[in-house]
Design a protein around this nucleic acid. Structure first.
Length: 739
DNA sequence: TTCTGTTGACTGTAGACAGCATGTC
DNA sequence: CTACAGTCAACAGAA
C-alpha cells in the first residue's frame, strides 16, 4: 500500500514522501485496512521498529485535521521526550505538541491548547485526578506498550487510566500498541478494537543459542572463532570483526561492569587508532563528571570501546554511553534490563548472557519469554544492519535444548491484569471516588467492572478487595461511607482529596498523617525517616556489613524516631533498619557529603542517590501539604527539608543554590569565600568569582542574577568576548526553548 | 619455585512512575 | 523463605 493512496490530506502525503517513506509496511497497511483512518479502535501487536509510531501518527494527523485532539501515552519519561521531539517535526502542518511528565511540563500556556499531548500513564492519571478540562476534548488516544498492563507495579495505573478515559470519552478512538503477546485478541476485545497481529520486521531477526563453539539457529549453525575462554567475549569479538555492535544483557550490575572490564581488554585490540582517539576523549568526559569509582571504571572501559549501563549511573554518564554507542564508537554495551525496553538503541547482535534474574520471593528465576523477546528485538538496526542476531548461552546440552524450546521457539506469555490486590487498588478506589466516577458502592463496582481485570477474571474476588479498600479509606478518614443509603453512598473528605491529588498511595498518606500526629520532638531525621517508612519510598537493602552501623545509629538517635519496633520482632525490625539506612543516606545528601563518599558508604551509584532524593522530595512535599491540612506545626520544617533534598544542601545555602547554574558544590565554594547571600554575590568582582568557579561559570552566574557581566568583565581580567557572547546566546536559547 | 586448576565457603542480587515550580557538576 | 553466580582463599598438582 502506497502512502499516496491513503485517505489523508495532500500536504501530509508529500511530507512523508519527501522524508523517504513511500510505502507502508505490511502491518501498517493492515491497520489501515482495519479502519485506522476511519476512527476505528485498533490494537497493533507487532514487533518494535515495525513502524508503530508512523501508524499512530497517521491516525492522529487525520483526526486533528478533522478538528480532533490526540493524547499519546507512554510508559517512560525518556520515551515521552523521544516522541515529543519526533512529533514536533510535524510543526509545518500547524500541529502543536505538548509534553507532560513528572519532571517536565512544556511551557505552553495551557497544555490543552496543543493538538498532540505526550504524557506518561501516571501523569495522565494525575491530570485526570486534577480535573483537567481538555481531557474531554480528546478524540484519539494512543497507548504505547500496552502489554505493560501485566506489570505488577505500574500495570494497574495504566489499566484504570484507560478505563477512565474510555468512560469519559466513549466515542474516542483508541490505538493501542503492544509487543507480541499470547492473548492479544483478549486485550483487543476489551478495548473493542480490531487486531493487527504480526511478526513482520523491516530487518530480519535470527534467534539462536550458543553451544559447542557455534550459534545454533533454527535450521543452521554459525561457527564462532574461539579467541578467549569466555564464550560471550568470543561472540562480541566476532560481531566487531564483522563490523557490527553488540548489546549484552546481564542480570546484575556487578556482572555488568565485570563483563565490560574483562571483555574490553580483548575488544581494544580490534580497534584502530582513530576510534581509540575519539574514545579517549569520551572517557575523559566521563571522568570529568565525577570522581566516583564507577566513573573511573567506566572511563577505562570506554577507552577500550566497551561500556556498561545501569540505573546506578548518573544521567550524564548514561547519555555519554548511549550517544557513544549511536555514533558507533562504543562497540559493546553491557547492560542490565534498563535498555531492554524504552530507549531506541539497536545493535547488530544481542547477547543474553544471563537468562535468570533474582526475585526476592522465589530466588533465581528464568525471565519471561516476553522479556526475552524484547531484548532479542533490539537486534538489527533497520536500514543499517543486514540482519539482527540474538544469542542465548548454554553450558550443557540439556540447557541448550531447553533454551531453544523455552525461548527461541516459544511464544510470549499471556498478559494478566494485576489489579486484583488491595495494594494496587487502594489508590484507584480513592481517586474514583474523589473524581466522581463513583459516588456509591454500586457505581464503584460498575466502574471497576469495566476494567481489563473484570473482563479477564471473575469479579466476585475483585468486589471483596474493593470493599477492603473502601474500609481502609474510611478508617483513615479519606472517605466517608453512608450505610443508611442503599446502595451505600461514598464521598471523599478533604484529606482524601489531598491524598489523591498528591498522587501518593493512601497508605503513605495514612502513615504520614499518623506520624505527624504522634511526633513529639521533630528534627530532620524524624521527618526523613517518616518519609522513608512509606510504601512509596523504595528502601535500601540491608547488607550484612550494615547491621552494626545502622543499629548503632538507631541506638544513639533513638529519640529521633517516632516509633521503634520491638527488636525481637525480627521482620519488623529488619524493615525498620532498611528505612533508617535509607534515611541516613538522605541525611548525608542534605548535609552536603560528597556524592562520591555517599556512593561508598551505601554501596550505591550516583544515579541511585538522585532517584532516592527525587522520591524523598516528592514525599516530603506531600508531608508539607498534609501537615498544613492537619494544622500541625511541622509543615514549615518539612518544606525546608523538601528544598534541601532537592538541592542536597544545608539550610544556609538555600539562597545561593536557587541561582541557576549553582548547585550544592558551587554554592558551598561561594559561601566559604564569603558570598553568603544573593546580595553579597551581586557585589562580587568578576575576577574573584572567575578564580573561584572558572570564567565561564562565573559569567553565567552573574548574568543569571541580573548583573551586567560585560561591564564587570571589561574592568577586570579580559575574557575572550566571543566566548562570552556564545555563552550568553546559548543561555538565551535554552531559556526560550521552554517558553 | 611458579603457574594453573579445583574446591568450598561466603556474599549479594533490575528498573523507575508521581507533586511543584524552575534549572546540577 | 527461595537459588544461583561470581569471588576469593586455600591447596594440590603440573611445569
Amino acid at each position: 500500500m502506497l502512502i499516496k493512496e491513503l485517505d489523508i490530506p495532500e500536504d501530509i502525503i508529500r511530507f512523508y514522501e519527501d522524508s523517504g517513506i513511500k510505502e507502508l509496511y505490511p502491518p501498517q497497511a493492515e491497520a489501515v485496512d482495519n479502519g485506522l483512518l476511519e476512527g476505528k479502535n485498533l490494537l497493533a501487536a507487532i514487533p518494535t521498529a515495525s513502524g508503530k509510531t508512523l501508524l499512530a501518527e497517521l491516525a492522529m494527523l487525520k483526526a486533528i485535521r478533522n478538528g480532533g485532539k490526540a493524547l499519546y501515552i507512554v510508559p517512560l519519561r525518556a520515551l515521552a521526550s523521544e516522541k515529543f521531539d519526533r512529533f514536533r517535526e510535524l510543526a509545518p502542518f500547524g500541529i502543536k505538541v505538548g509534553i507532560s511528565t513528572g519532571d517536565f511540563d512544556s511551557r505552553d500556556e495551557w497544555l490543552g491548547a496543543n493538538d498532540i499531548i505526550v504524557a506518561t500513564s501516571e501523569k495522565t492519571d494525575s491530570l485526570l485526578r486534577n480535573g483537567t478540562s481538555w481531557m474531554e476534548e480528546i478524540t484519539t488516544i494512543v497507548v504505547d506498550e500496552v502489554h505493560l498492563l501485566d506489570s505488577k507495579n505500574r500495570g494497574p495505573t495504566l489499566e484504570v487510566t484507560i478505563t477512565k478515559l474510555m468512560r469519559l470519552n466513549p466515542d474516542c478512538q483508541i490505538i493501542a500498541l503492544s509487543a507480541t503477546v499470547g492473548n492479544a485478541r483478549e486485550m483487543a476485545d476489551w478495548l473493542e478494537a480490531s487486531l493487527v497481529l504480526s511478526e513482520w520486521r523491516p530487518t530480519d531477526l535470527h534467534e539462536g543459542v550458543f553451544f559447542g563453539e557455534a550459534i545454533n539457529f533454527l535450521g543452521k549453525q554459525k561457527k564462532i572463532e574461539r579467541r578467549d575462554k569466555d564464550n560471550a567475549t568470543n561472540l562480541v569479538l566476532d560481531t566487531i570483526s564483522e563490523g557490527g555492535q553488540c548489546l549484552v544483557f546481564e542480570s546484575s550490575r556487578r556482572n555488568c561492569t565485570g563483563f565490560a572490564k574483562t571483555s574490553s581488554n580483548k575488544v581494544v585490540k580490534l580497534l584502530d587508532r582513530e576510534i581509540l582517539g575519539k574514545l579517549a576523549v569520551m572517557a575523559e568526559e566521563v571522568e570529568s563528571t565525577g570522581e566516583t569509582d564507577t566513573a573511573k571504571v567506566l572511563a577505562n572501559c570506554i577507552r577500550k570501546g566497551v561500556a556498561f549501563h545501569h540505573a546506578g549511573l548518573n544521567s550524564s554518564h548514561r547519555k555519554i554511553v548511549e550517544d557513544g554507542f549511536r555514533q558507533n564508537l562504543i562497540k559493546v554495551i553491557s547492560s542490565t534490563p534498563t535498555l531492554a525496553a524504552g530507549l531506541n538503541l539497536p545493535a547488530r547482535r544481542v547477547i543474553v548472557r544471563n537468562y535468570r534474574r533474582f526475585d526476592a520471593n522465589f530466588g533465581m528465576q528464568p525471565i519471561p519469554v516476553l522479556e526475552y523477546k524484547q531484548m532479542a528485538g533490539r537486534a538489527g538496526r533497520p536500514h543499517l544492519d543486514p540482519y539482527g542476531e540474538s544469542v542465548l548461552l548454554a553450558k550443557e546440552y540439556a540447557e541448550f535444548e531447553q533454551l531453544l524450546e523455552n525461548y527461541v521457539e516459544a511464544d510470549a506469555e499471556d498478559i494478566w491484569s494485576k489489579l486484583g490486590t488491595e495494594n494496587a487498588l487502594r489508590t484507584h478506589v480513592l481517586s474514583t471516588i474523589v473524581n466522581g466516577f463513583a459516588s456509591d458502592r454500586k457505581q464503584m463496582m460498575e466502574f471497576m467492572g469495566s476494567t481489563f481485570f473484570a473482563f479477564q477474571q471473575d469479579t466476585w474476588s475483585l468486589e471483596e478487595v474493593i470493599d477492603d479498600c473502601i474500609e481502609y479509606l474510611a478508617e483513615h478518614e479519606m472517605v466517608v461511607k453512608d450505610e443508611s443509603h442503599d446502595p451505600i453512598s461514598l464521598s471523599s473528605t478533604q484529606l482524601g482529596k489531598l491524598v489523591s491529588m498528591l498522587y501518593i498511595d493512601p497508605m503513605s498518606g495514612a502513615k504520614i498523617v499518623d506520624g505527624l500526629k504522634k511526633a513529639v520532638n521533630v528534627n530532620d531525621m524524624t521527618l526523613l525517616h517518616l518519609v522513608c517508612s512509606t510504601p512509596d519510598m523504595r528502601q535500601l537493602y540491608m547488607r550484612s556489613a550494615d547491621y552494626a552501623r545502622v543499629n548503632d545509629f538507631v541506638m544513639s538517635h533513638s529519640d529521633d524516631f517516632i516509633e521503634i519496633p520491638n527488636e525481637f520482632k525480627a521482620i519488623d525490625y529488619e524493615w525498620f533498619l532498611g528505612e533508617v539506612k535509607t534515611a541516613m543516606l538522605l541525611d548525608e545528601w542534605i548535609r552536603e557529603i560528597p556524592a562520591d563518599d555517599i556512593t561508598q558508604h551505601f554501596n550505591v551509584g550516583e544515579g541511585d542517590i538522585h532517584a532516592l532524593a527525587d522520591t524523598a522530595e516528592w514525599l516530603m512535599h506531600a508531608t508539607t501539604k498534609l501537615a498544613e491540612l492537619l494544622k500541625v506545626e511541622h509543615s514549615s520544617h518539612a518544606h525546608g527539608l523538601e528544598k534541601r533534598i532537592h538541592y542536597g544542601a544545608s539550610p544556609e545555602l538555600m539562597q545561593l543554590v536557587s541561582i541557576r547554574g549553582v548547585g550544592r558544590v558551587r554554592a558551598r565554594k561561594l559561601y566559604e569565600a564569603g558570598f553568603v547571600s544573593l546580595a553579597e554575590l551581586k557585589k562580587a568582582e568578576y575576577s574573584v568569582l572567575s578564580k573561584l568557579v572558572g570564567p565561564k561559570v562565573a559569567a553565567n552566574i552573574l548574568s543569571n542574577i541580573g548583573v551586567r557581566v560585560k561591564d564587570k568583565v571589561g574592568k577586570s581580567t579580559p575574557i575572550n568576548s566571543n566566548t562570552l557572547d556564545t555563552l550568553l546566546d546559548k543561555e538565551q536559547k535554552t531559556f526560550s526553548d521552554f517558553q
